[in-house]
Computed example of a mutant assay.
Amino acid sequence: MGAQWKTKIKETTAAAKGRIFTKLAKEIMVAARGGPDPNQNSKLRMAVEQAKKASMPKDNIERAIKKGAGLLDEQVSYEKLTYEGFAPHRVPVIVECLTDNANRTASNIRMLFRKGQLGASGSVSWDFDYVGMIEATPESPGADPEVAAIEAGARDLEPAENGATLFLTEPSDLDAVARALPAHGFVVQSAQLGYRPKNPVTLGAAERAEVEAFLEAIDADDDVQNVYPGLAD
Score class of each variant (00 low, 15 high):
residue 55 S to M: 02
residue 86 F to M: 09
residue 81 L to I: 13
residue 139 E to G: 15
residue 131 V to K: 15
residue 205 A to N: 10
residue 173 D to F: 03
residue 64 A to L: 01
residue 7 T to A: 05
residue 58 K to H: 02
residue 38 P to E: 04
residue 42 S to F: 10
residue 120 A to D: 12
residue 156 D to C: 01
residue 80 K to M: 03
residue 183 A to N: 12
residue 49 E to W: 00
residue 140 S to E: 06
residue 19 R to K: 15
residue 147 V to D: 09
residue 209 A to R: 11
residue 169 T to P: 10
residue 57 P to Q: 09
residue 45 R to M: 13
residue 171 P to R: 03
residue 205 A to P: 03
residue 207 E to Q: 15
residue 105 T to S: 12
residue 164 A to F: 02
residue 56 M to F: 01
residue 145 P to M: 04
residue 188 V to A: 07
residue 164 A to M: 02
residue 10 K to W: 03
residue 77 S to W: 03
residue 224 V to L: 02
residue 173 D to R: 15
residue 80 K to G: 04
residue 189 Q to L: 11
residue 74 E to N: 14
residue 165 T to N: 05
residue 176 A to V: 12
residue 182 P to K: 00
residue 85 G to D: 08
residue 31 A to T: 06
residue 143 A to P: 05
residue 172 S to Q: 14
residue 141 P to W: 06
residue 225 Q to W: 01
residue 233 D to M: 03
residue 30 V to Y: 08
residue 223 D to M: 04
residue 66 K to G: 03
residue 104 R to C: 01
residue 95 V to Q: 08
residue 146 E to S: 14
residue 162 N to F: 13
residue 135 E to P: 03
residue 33 R to F: 02
residue 46 M to A: 12
residue 27 E to T: 04
residue 163 G to Q: 01
residue 135 E to D: 12
residue 224 V to Y: 11
residue 1 M to L: 07
residue 151 E to D: 06
residue 213 A to R: 15
residue 161 E to N: 10
residue 12 T to A: 07
residue 48 V to H: 10
residue 138 P to S: 08
residue 55 S to C: 00
residue 216 E to A: 14
residue 110 R to V: 05
residue 50 Q to L: 11
residue 31 A to F: 04
residue 131 V to N: 09
residue 183 A to F: 12
residue 56 M to C: 10
residue 4 Q to M: 05
residue 76 V to I: 10
residue 22 T to F: 12
residue 229 P to S: 11
residue 227 V to T: 10
residue 83 Y to Q: 05
residue 233 D to N: 13
residue 44 L to M: 08
residue 21 F to A: 08
residue 121 S to D: 14
residue 64 A to H: 12
residue 155 R to H: 04
residue 227 V to H: 12
residue 226 N to A: 14
residue 29 M to C: 08
